[in-house]
Design a protein around this nucleic acid. Sequence first.
DNA 1: GTCTGGCACTCGTCAGTTCTGAGTGCCAAT
DNA 2: ATTGGCACTCAGAACTGACGAGTGCCAGAC
Lengths: 339, 339
Amino acid sequence: MSSEDRKLDVLRAIVEDFVSTNDPVGSKALSERHNLGVSPATIRNDMAALEEEGYIAQPHTSAGRVPTDKGYRLFVDRLSAAKPLSAPERRAIQSFLEGAGDLDDVLRRTVRVLAQLTRQMAVVQYPTLTRSAVRHLEVVDVGPRRLMLVLITDTGRVEQRVLELSVAVTDDDVTELRRMLNSHLQGRRLADAHIALLDLPHIVAPALRPVMTTIVAGLVEALVEKPEERVMTGGTANLTRSVLDFPNSLHPVLEALEEQVVLLRLIGEVDSSTVLVRIGGENPHEGLHRTSVVSVGYGAGDTALGGLGVVGPTRMDYAGNMSAVRAVARYVGQMLAGS
Amino acid sequence: MSSEDRKLDVLRAIVEDFVSTNDPVGSKALSERHNLGVSPATIRNDMAALEEEGYIAQPHTSAGRVPTDKGYRLFVDRLSAAKPLSAPERRAIQSFLEGAGDLDDVLRRTVRVLAQLTRQMAVVQYPTLTRSAVRHLEVVDVGPRRLMLVLITDTGRVEQRVLELSVAVTDDDVTELRRMLNSHLQGRRLADAHIALLDLPHIVAPALRPVMTTIVAGLVEALVEKPEERVMTGGTANLTRSVLDFPNSLHPVLEALEEQVVLLRLIGEVDSSTVLVRIGGENPHEGLHRTSVVSVGYGAGDTALGGLGVVGPTRMDYAGNMSAVRAVARYVGQMLAGS
DNA sequence: GTCTGGCACTCGTCAGTTCTGAGTGCCAAT
DNA sequence: ATTGGCACTCAGAACTGACGAGTGCCAGAC
């Protein structure tokens, strides 16, 4: 083994020890707990080199070393072996998700099982509207000159919106609107629905034209132009598991994680099915510079319907969390495909 | 003023000082900050009596006094004056809630404004199904032998449920089912819908009877027997505002507050419009013995549709929070009545 | 009977000190 | 290239004494 290889072994050992103990790790402890085949003195030389290159750091002079963000990054990219879930864990995921009912229920169970497996805070995005298809669009008369549109997608998502009309409509009008909308939109992806929508006012009965125009405008705005992305979180309490992880108080962390927008940026920017890891300062949000995020897209087939992941201290079990996140995403994909 | 009255004044002063400073308050500081017209020595006698009666306690021998749960209780019941919101605060609530769209949006804004006003964690319950009326019930054919029922209530709540059928249904069947269900249920309260529902299988065309029976069973179970109550939370980060408030770590607190069931028991048991205050150990849940809950029912008119409230450390501004909760509940009631 | 000033006492907090030990870097020897 | 030895650093624990906030009690005043 070259000395370069051993240096990486040392880094791996440091990360593993630090993750499990939360104590800065010194050369002596290292040579005892891992059989690296060299003396502490040699390890010290390697550590000095690693520190020089920015992979580890000393909290203070007479302390052991702690991995830096850069060190974790190298560990994740090159040093950590995939860590397959145990059979009981797989069974737990499966049985937990199997009893689910509607979409909300599926996602609720998803965050729960993910938080339990990883002992971190879990986040899951609702299937994005743009890549979903219309299963049904319901038009309901609610009060004078107000219509409620209820969209049901093929992933089971239900979105509603109330429109104010300038004229009153009869029950027959509503039925006709519903019929037209559904016959033109059903089965269509929302991303492709734009053109079909804009046609509708022209082919509807003249009397209904203004109403249809309003409906189309509402739909285009709510579903095509700025489709509402949503997320669900769970296991927030896990962030408080160790007080030591967020010494400056976790107030800013919790504050950041309450914002849907922030969460979406964290887990919603997945375009493939490879697990994405963001470590400490790599995170876009200021308050999350001491946290890491492990996320992946889930989907039925090849298109990613949304993202899910976990958020925790940079000192986390990356290999385990990556496996858990990947496995849960696969099961969720199956669930949504089968419904 | 009788000496009994003064003793209560002393208790009030202790609570007020402790709430604002978080320091145990001593006799000298008390006589300086409040003009009670007596010397510290006299106050000491009163404090000894108050401690004897269990209203205050000493963290340790040479420290000032701190209110006990019992002390806060007396304060809330008899000593705290209503604290009307400022005009800007009222305007803030109103303008914040006015722009709301659908129900989710209303509730989202509600928890937000409540959390901001009180600087506590806020909780709001979705309008309970039992006291809502059916505005529309949609039947959607989703995949082979599966129907999705979508219930829309007069409060704007949308609930869905997927049913497995033993036989296939045609589009015409679905239309007929929808027509029958709506004509019998529309405008009816869910609490009263039970009887009407049970009639339906008997008056529907014989061919549709098994399907209707399944639907009715599903509806009865989901909406009448165990209607799903939901809550929304916000401002959780406020619990971490002062580390001192939850010295033993707030892990158990956060864990408790993640459970929908626990939250429902906290704020869902309001049957009138009087503000309910639960202090420390009065809370049903073990993990919340260091927290207080201020809650009230909201509703359109006289029936309470649900509850809302705030959760925080026992050391909280009870008067202010009670006013804020009451005010927000009134506005929410108006919002929901007008939609 | 109630209030007050005085006084002795308790005890947590703070600052200063010392001690210990984990951990390091460097160097000469292998 | 590796190793054992050694001097050095420094955070944290443990101890100390001074300080002072706060108390309870009591005798005297109103």
